[in-house]
Write a protein that binds this DNA or RNA. Structure first.
Lengths: 370, 370
DNA sequence: CAGCTCGGTGGGAGCGCTCCCATACCGGAA
DNA sequence: TTCCGGTATGGGAGCGCTCCCACCGAGCTG
């Protein structure tokens, strides 16, 4: 240890502040948290002493006695116990709704984080926590071993709770946390009912927005590229689109399933075009696949949006990088992440609170592709 | 507090393990960390007791006495105190070497994290830390207030040190941390000499690789799109390219400066093409601008790579999303981040260690654009 | 064989904090 | 005046851990 203490050496302690203010440790403590029954005059004195000494509470000491860490974990939890073989497609793994559950193969080193989706979530979480003097602990739980580690960490109370982005429907972590009584909030509705809070997007509404936009443009031969249908969000998107189309009197339209990668978008588009050369409108379940579709459309000499109008989903960076720029359904990921964090803190504060869900409405961002 | 303790309630303590093993607390402690002078027999007994009781050390208690948090911070530190007006360009802010120092305007909510660069860094850090049972605390310090908060957090020893990704040359945080004796490691060479460890890329070599590749392809009218030249890394890339060209007998070639965004790449390309319609080779300081260049090239009917060969930099997701796929200079960001973390832990362990630097060699990833 | 060193072990203090409890003091009712 | 309630304050215990120091016995040296 020797001079390890050097760094934080002689941080003033409660005792120091108490001495400076001429009161007891207990009183200073009361002023610092809660201010319960303390003479206003003394409160001022204490506060002055705090600033004078530059006192900052020692987290460890506080955590030791309160059994609270004053920290939350941001967990990105990967494939379930039954990890299937990763998708053969080795395309770019940018974009794609992380919350969905696409399984992209590993670039040897947490491909999950390379997902811009993750960045947006992190940003939302950090942004919310910071004014409260908190910072998230970043944890990755993509293997069973890692998951055990994360679970232990949480169960031992090293963090007060977890904001959980689960990328796979079979992920056992949410259930385990709930069972262990660890406060947690999920980024999407859990596939199986679980007494846990979550935030989600009204995927159906998003898809409806897309359908209506395409229809309003005058598209009459519409098709879709879905995401993997074992992902709840994708089912919802597909269903929402179907609904809207049916309501408009066109219950049938061709559709192909992709796996969220750009390459799968290219393949899907090629397939669609081969079978339905006359199509004039396309809804794609995420921006990255839409970008792929755009590539193929261009190769085959179709003008976008004149010949074929294309609407994506997510409003990720890919949407803005595509040419023409993608018209897309925007998910307010940052706000969703912030809300998720808010819910978590609420649960930490009041453990008996019943689970809540907050559903966000998507919006259509109109650019050039439709 | 009431039933807050519920969660971690009755975690077995050292005392419990000691009782179970029939030894003293001190001996168990010795076995758990370091195993110094403990009878092998007893060691076994203790280890058995640990697994039997399911003991996990209480971080807070340990931190309280060791004055070590057993945690490191991953800090993304933004613009300096003298924040200039953000770049007028509001293009996508995806990609672009975060370590450089481009200033992208804020999307109200930590645009930094949306940078895939950040994701790769986080992945590298987490990957390295995890086997050691550690997890980084994520901190954003893009405003002076936030920076103060981060600084305080670190100085108080709430984390043992920081892995620092500074996005702006004028960022005062590195110097402050060094001065305060907080262990830190930077992602790039500090603009001003500072006794601090860092990892970096041999940018010159990367640019040389690009130049040689272009030359070997037979390109004779080469041009470049640089990044902002107030960024060290970009200076290096420009200089490296210049060197290689000069060595090949072509000391002069047109070049334009961009600001790392896709749009600026489009502008730069248009400008270059207008003035030098005959160019047949292009080196762009990052992939995103290269993607923009590709757009313009296509619009103007130039075939890539037949008419114009294009080489990017970074090997970001943009490189793989572009069509044709970008040939680019790869930065091993994940490995760099891991090394950065390794260095940090070394410094935490041995505070007197002198600063070290580790420079990584880039490699050329040949795809279709050149 | 006394005196030592030294590897192995246990006891105790104390890290900085919160919280319980005792104490002191105030004013108003009996 | 005495007694009581309530409010403001201080003292002390103890959270779970590490580390210092005392201890003890075995094996060595002089």
């Amino acid at each position: 240890m020797s001079d390890r203490a050097r760094t934080a050496a002689h941080s003033p302690t409660l005792e120091d502040v108490a001495r400076a203010a001429g009161v007891s440790r207990a009183t200073v403590s009361r002023v610092i948290n809660g201010t319960r029954n303390v003479d206003p005059e003394i409160q001022r004195t204490v506060r002055d002493a705090v600033t004078a000494t530059g006192y900052v509470p020692n987290r460890a000491a506080r955590a030791l006695v309160t059994r609270r860490a004053d920290t939350v974990a941001l967990v990105v939890s990967g494939a379930g116990a039954d990890t299937g073989p990763p998708d053969a497609d080795t395309g770019p793994r940018e974009d794609g709704s992380v919350h969905g559950g696409e399984e992209r193969d590993g670039d040897a080193g947490g491909p999950l984080f390379s997902d811009p989706f993750f960045g947006r979530i992190a940003a939302g979480v950090v942004e919310f926590l910071r004014p409260r003097g908190m910072h998230p602990v970043l944890m990755l739980a993509e293997s069973p071993a890692a998951r055990d580690q994360v679970f232990d960490y949480l169960r031992r109370g090293h963090a007060d709770g977890a904001v959980l982005v689960s990328t796979h429907a079979a992920d056992p972590l949410p259930a385990r946390l709930v069972e262990a009584g660890v406060p947690a909030v999920l980024f999407a509705r859990p596939p199986r009912p679980l007494p846990v809070s979550y935030v989600d997007l009204a995927h159906r509404d998003g898809a409806r927005l897309a359908a209506e936009h395409l229809l309003a443009r005058g598209c009459r031969r519409v098709a879709t590229v879905n995401g993997p249908l074992d992902v709840l969000a994708c089912q919802e998107r597909a269903a929402g689109f179907q609904d809207a189309m049916a309501r408009a009197g066109s219950p049938y339209f061709p559709s192909v399933e992709g796996n969220f990668t750009l390459e799968s978008g290219e393949r899907a588009m090629a397939q669609l075009l081969a079978r339905h050369p006359g199509l004039d409108g396309l809804f794609v379940a995420n921006d990255l696949m839409a970008q792929g579709a755009l590539h193929v459309l261009r190769e085959q000499g179709r003008r976008v949006p004149e010949d074929v109008a294309v609407v994506g989903f997510d409003d990720s960076s890919a949407a803005r990088a595509a040419r023409p720029r993608l018209t897309t359904v925007r998910q307010p990921v940052e706000r969703m992440a912030a809300e998720m964090t808010r819910l978590l803190l609420e649960h930490v504060e009041q453990p008996d609170r019943s689970p809540a869900s907050v559903i966000f409405e998507p919006t259509l961002v109109t650019r050039h592709s439709a």
